[in-house]
Computed example of a mutant assay.
Amino acid sequence: MATATSKSPAKDGWPLVRKIKYAAAAIGALFVVWIVFNFADIKAQAKLGASYGAHVACSCRYIEGRPLASCEKDFEAGMELVSVSDDPDNKRVTASVPLLAEAVAERRGEFGCIQLNDKEIAELD
């Protein structure tokens, strides 16, 4: 009685699948390492974008008198992640980059729109 010694067809593709899994894991690990080493720069860029967005939107809304939806057209290219919200009672605009940064600008009479510092923002809550 003879027995078949060939490999089953289901296992022929496993070495390729294993290589793809290892490659995906290596790419994922490299991405995590890149994020860890660049997180301070990413956070700083997010804060810069939020601050710029708050100032531009506040000036547009409370100095020029335009609606807030119109003010987002004034943003530079690459600011798609910055979202703005309006507080008309206090003449204040908040801009944020989700999970990374937030900035608030407020209209203060003759001084125009002023960025609030972290202490002033904490007092708002």
Score class of each variant (00 low, 15 high):
Asp74Cys: 03
Lys73Cys: 01
Ala44Asn: 11
Pro9Val: 14
Ala95Pro: 00
His55Cys: 06
Gly28Arg: 02
Pro98Ser: 10
Ile42Asp: 01
His55Met: 15
Ser51Ala: 13
Lys91Cys: 02
Asp89Arg: 11
Ala101Ser: 09
Val82Ile: 13
Leu30Met: 14
Ala40Leu: 08
Ile42Ala: 08
Glu80Cys: 05
Ala54Lys: 08
Ala50Pro: 01
Gly112Phe: 01
Asp74Asn: 15
Pro9Lys: 13
Thr3Tyr: 04
Val97Glu: 07
Ala54Ile: 10
Phe111His: 10
Phe111Asp: 15
Ile27Glu: 03
Cys60Ser: 04
Ile35Pro: 01
Pro67Thr: 09
Pro98Met: 07
Arg108Gly: 03
Met79Gln: 05
Val32Lys: 03
Phe75Cys: 10
Phe39Val: 14
Lys19Leu: 15
Ala95Glu: 06
Trp34Glu: 12
His55Gln: 14
Ser96Cys: 03
Lys11Leu: 13
Ile42Lys: 05
Ala24Asp: 03
Lys7Gly: 04
Ser70Gln: 14
Leu48His: 09
Arg18His: 13
Ile35Arg: 00
Cys71Asp: 04
Ala50Glu: 05
Val36Ser: 04
Thr5Met: 03
Asp12Cys: 06
Ser51Lys: 10
Leu68Val: 12
Ala40Glu: 13
Asp86Glu: 15
Leu99Ile: 05
Ile63Leu: 09
Arg107His: 09
Pro88Lys: 10
Lys11Ser: 11
Cys60Thr: 07
Pro15Thr: 11
Cys71Ile: 06
Val97Ile: 14
Arg66Cys: 04
Ala77Arg: 12
Glu72Met: 11
Ile63Phe: 01
Gly49Ser: 09
Glu102Asp: 09
Ala4Ile: 11
Pro9Asp: 14
Arg108Glu: 10
Glu80Asp: 15
Val84Arg: 01
Phe39Pro: 00
Glu72Cys: 10
Asn90Cys: 05
Lys21Val: 12
Val104Met: 04
Cys60Gln: 09
Ala101Thr: 06
Ala40Met: 02
Trp34Tyr: 13
Glu110Arg: 07
Glu72Asp: 13
Lys47Gly: 02
Thr94Phe: 10
Val32Asp: 04
Ala44Met: 06
Ala54Pro: 00
Asp41Tyr: 04
Ser83His: 11
Glu64Asp: 14
Ile35Val: 15
Pro15Ala: 13
Gly112Thr: 10
